[in-house]
Amino acid sequence: MDDPHDRSDRFELIAACDGDALESVADQVLASDPTLDVLQEPRPQLVMQRVVEPVERRPFNLGEVVVTPAEVSLDGERGFAMVPGKAERAALSGAIVDAAVADRHPIADEAVAVLEQAGEAYEREREQTWAESRHTTVEFETMEDDL
């Protein structure tokens, strides 16, 4: 998820982006008074998380995850976003940002920069978490020789 110009990468970056940052970019897009149609209202919905258990390699339903999807048409360009949790404004803003970047809106460069920052922040957090966990790696020694 590192290329905001790629639609699938952009979807992941929008989902990882802070809601306030998305809203700020979306407000700038809407300031130019584009034609906006909301194709799918931002409403919390569920996705059922499926996992393939490793014993029999059978999928099972672990449980549901709350997400908020939204879809818009911005000057004829469609945009789709899905963000974690109950976050209607972030989802609608994300869909607008998605469409704006796809449509090469004047604010697209700024949107791309915000999304790149979101991707970098995500990676930084993962690296920090990983480094902290690795710092607790231990080698257990059996003590039968000492007994």
Binding site: L46, V52, P54, E64, R126
Partner: peptide
Amino acid sequence: RSTLERWDETNPVDPSDMFATRRVSPAYK
């Protein structure tokens, strides 16, 4: 939850894709 619509099921994920922050094996030293 009972008030929400189901968007869809996720694509099945393999537990080996887990980003583990903790893992201990009592069986394998």
